[in-house]
Design a protein around this nucleic acid. Structure first.
Lengths: 232, 232
DNA sequence: CAGGTTCCTCAGGGAACCCTCAGGTGGCCG
DNA sequence: CGGCCACCTGAGGGTTCCCTGAGGAACCTG
C-alpha cells in the first residue's frame, strides 16, 4: 500500500537467502520484488521501475553483470551486487559494470540495510515529498501532479495547497490552519482558500468523484486511500 | 584544468599508507590533500572544499566518525571510511555517521579506486561518461553535445548547466540551487540562469519540442523521457 | 595587439499568476 | 417552505515572474 515507498528489485537464485532479503527489506519499509533469475528482468524494470536493484552475480541463465549493464544503460537505478565470489578481480568487474556497492557473502542483514540506505541517500532516491492518494500522485520534488496516469498542470500555490492536504489526508483542516500553513498569513480570508480549492477541483475532479471534501462550518478534508485488500 | 579536477581529502595517520593512497589517487587524476590527523580539518574543509573525504576511523586526537558527522552536517562531501576494524558493529557505526562506503584494511589500491569512482559517480561529483535524456546525448568528458544525431556546439558554462540539469532530470531545480551548484555563487541573480537556459533552448530545441521545462515560481526541470507504461 | 568568443548585466515586453470581489448556489434550521 | 448563512466560482486588475535581444568587459588565440 505504500506506493510512495522506495522500490527495490532483488534477483537471487538461492530461495532461502532470497526470502530472507525480501523480508529484511520489507520490514525496513521498502517495496520489494524478488526474482529467482533474470528471465523477466527487462520487463520488470519497465513496469516495476526499481530505485535500487540487489543482484546476485552468479545467476542461472544470465550473469548479474549483464543485468547491471542493462540498468546502467537504460535507467538511473542504483545497483548493489551480492555475491559469494570474494576475489578482487570479481569486485573490480562488478564496479566496472556500474555497481554502486558490492557485498560479499556471508553478510548480516544490518549491513545490507546500512549500505542500501547509503546508496539510496547518495543517489537521491530517498524521496521526501511524494504522496499518493487513491489515483492521485503528488510529486513535490518534480513539481508534478498526476491523476489517473495523466499529468495535470498546477501552479506553485496550488501545488503547496495540494501537498498540505495530501500530507494531512484523513484529517479535517480549518481554513485558518490552511492559510497559516500554506500562505503563512495571519489574516483570515476564507475565500482565498475557497477559491484555490475550487481551482484544484476543476483540474483534478474531472471524472466526477470528489477528492477534496468540504466539511461545512469547519474546513476541508482529503480522504484516505480507499480501504483495499491489505495483502501484506 | 587542475582547478576543475575532483578534490579528495585524505586523513590517515600511518605515514606509509598515507603516501601510498595519495600517490594512487593522484595518478588516477584526482587533486589530493593528505593529512596525518584531523587537527586542521574544519579549516581545510572550508578552503580545500573536497568532493570526497577518505577517512581513517582510528585517528590520534579525534575520531574519523566525528569528522564524518561534521562533513555530513555542513557539506555535501562524500565520505569513504578506511579502517582496520572489521567488526560489523564498527561498520554500522560508520554508516550511521553518514559514510558512503566503508573499506576494511588490508585492501588493494584498485578496489579503493573502483569504490572511489562509484561513490563520486553517484554523488554527481565525477565528470564521468555520457548522460542520455531521450534523444539528447551529453558527453561531459569530451565536452560534446549531440541532439537527434546532430552535434551541437555549446560553451563551457552551457555544458555545466546542461549536465547539472541532465544529472538531476525529473526533479525541479530552483535558480538558487542552480546558481550555487553550477556557478558557485552565493548571490541570487535569477536572470543569469534564465539567460543561459534561454541560450540552451535556442541551440537544443530546434525542432519545437521542449527539453527544459520551466516550472513557474519554482525553477526548471528536465524531464526523464521514459515511457509511462505503468499499468495501475 | 587585433579579432573573435565567451561571460555576464541590463531593461523592455509579454505572459502567467495571485488575490479580490461580487453574484450565484445549495445546505441547514426555524 | 422560506430565510439565512456558508460555500462556490467566474471575471478582472495588479503584480510578479520569465524570456530575450543588445552590449560591455574579460578572456583566449593567433
Amino acid at each position: 500500500m505504500d506506493s510512495d515507498a522506495v522500490r527495490v528489485l532483488v534477483v537471487e537464485d538461492d530461495a532461502v537467502l532470497r526470502s530472507c532479503i525480501r523480508d529484511g527489506l520489507t520490514d525496513a519499509g521498502y517495496q520489494v520484488r524478488a526474482e529467482p533469475d533474470g528471465s523477466a528482468f527487462p520487463a520488470l524494470v519497465e513496469t516495476f521501475r526499481p530505485d535500487l536493484a540487489v543482484l546476485d552475480v552468479m545467476l542461472p541463465g544470465s550473469s548479474g553483470l549483464q543485468l547491471a549493464r542493462h540498468l546502467r544503460a537504460h535507467t538511473d537505478t542504483a545497483v548493489l551486487f551480492l555475491t559469494a565470489r570474494d576475489a578482487v578481480a570479481d569486485r573490480l568487474a562488478g564496479f566496472e559494470a556500474g555497481a554502486d556497492d558490492y557485498i560479499v557473502k556471508p553478510f548480516v542483514m544490518a549491513e545490507l540495510l546500512a549500505r542500501t540506505r547509503a546508496v539510496l541517500r547518495r543517489s537521491g532516491k530517498l524521496r521526501s515529498g511524494r504522496l499518493q492518494v487513491s489515483d492521485l500522485l503528488v510529486d513535490e520534488d518534480a513539481g508534478e501532479v498526476i491523476r489517473a496516469g495523466q499529468p495535470v498542470q498546477v501552479t506553485a500555490t496550488e501545488l503547496r495547497l495540494l501537498c498540505y492536504l495530501a500530507r494531512n489526508r484523513g484529517r479535517v483542516l480549518s481554513k485558518t490552519q490552511i492559510l497559516t500553513q500554506v500562505w503563512g498569513y495571519e489574516a483570515y480570508d476564507p475565500n482565498l482558500v475557497e477559491a484555490y480549492v475550487s481551482g484544484l477541483r476543476r483540474k483534478l475532479e474531472t471524472n466526477g468523484d470528489r477528492l477534496i471534501h468540504t466539511v461545512r462550518g469547519i474546513g476541508y478534508r482529503m480522504n484516505q486511500a480507499e480501504p483495499q485488500m491489505r495483502a501484506s
